[in-house]
């Protein structure tokens, strides 16, 4: 599953720099997560970093984007392959 931000978000921007996949950005009214980029932090961390840092606990798993650990791992590998070489 990718994660989803609820409308109780206070636009504090704390989650955005914590995301290793640059999946979080400011949407029209509050912050949003791009499901194409969110791996639930698989490949980077043991737990979703945005959930760890969000002070209002308004980030949940998104039932509309259900993915297994293997699918998330594959997404992580694909994202890494797309990264420009340093």
């Amino acid at each position: 599953m990718s994660l989803k931000i609820l409308d109780t978000c206070v636009n504090c921007d704390v989650c955005e720099p914590a995301c290793p996949n640059k999946a979080i950005s400011l949407g029209e009214q509050f912050y949003v997560i791009d499901p194409a980029l969110c791996t639930e932090c698989v490949g980077h961390h043991d737990e979703p970093q945005c959930m760890v840092v969000c002070p209002v606990e308004c980030i949940i798993t998104d039932p509309e984007h259900i993915e297994s650990h293997d699918q998330l791992d594959l997404k992580y590998r694909q994202l890494m392959a797309m990264e420009p070489a340093a």
């Binding site: 409308d7 978000c9 206070v10 636009n11 504090c12 921007d13 704390v14 009214q29 509050f30």
Partner: peptide, 9 residues
């Protein structure tokens, strides 16, 4: 009256 505030920490 906006739906969300903007917090600058």
């Amino acid at each position: 009256s906006a739906s969300q505030p903007y917090a600058y920490l």
